Simulated scan of single mutants.
Amino acid sequence: MTPTTSEASRYQQLRDHLNYLRLPDAAAALPTVLDQAKTEKLSPTATLERLFRIEVDATEARRLTGRLRFANLPSPATLEDFDYEAQPGVDPALIRDLASNRYLQTATNILLIGPPGVGKTMLAVGLARKVAEGGHRTYFTNAADLAARCHRAAIEGRWATTMRFYAGPACLVIDELGYLPLPAEAASALFQVVNQRYLKSSIIMTTNRPVTEWGQVLGDNTVAAALLDRLLHRSVVIDITGESYRLRDHQARTDNLRRTVQPATATLDRSPSGQFR
Rank of each mutant, 00 (worst) to 15 (best):
L127Q: 11
G135D: 14
T206F: 02
P183T: 13
A132W: 02
T207N: 03
N142A: 01
R197Y: 10
L172N: 02
Q196D: 12
A224P: 10
G134E: 12
V173F: 12
I203W: 02
E156G: 00
S202D: 09
I155P: 01
C171W: 04
R197C: 08
M163N: 09
G135H: 08
E133T: 04
T162Y: 04
Y198Q: 08
S188D: 12
W214R: 01
E213K: 06
S202T: 04
N195R: 12
N221I: 09
L232W: 02
L218K: 00
C150A: 09
P210V: 06
V211Q: 11
N142P: 02
G178F: 10
I203C: 04
I203S: 01
E213N: 11
E185G: 13
A160E: 14
A170R: 14
P210R: 08
S188G: 13
H151W: 00
E185I: 14
L232E: 09
T207D: 01
C171A: 11
M163E: 13
V223Y: 13
Y139A: 07
A187K: 08
A143C: 01
S188Q: 15
M205C: 10
P169N: 04
R197H: 05
Q196S: 07
C171Q: 10
D145G: 01
L228C: 14
A143V: 02
H136C: 10
L146P: 03
P183A: 15
C150L: 08
T162D: 01
T222R: 15
N195M: 13
A153Y: 07
Y179L: 14
T222W: 09
L127R: 07
T207F: 05
T138F: 04
E133Y: 04
V173W: 03
F140C: 03
E185V: 10
I155D: 02
S201E: 09
D220Y: 08
A132I: 09
S202R: 02
L182Q: 05
R230C: 14
V193I: 12
L146W: 00
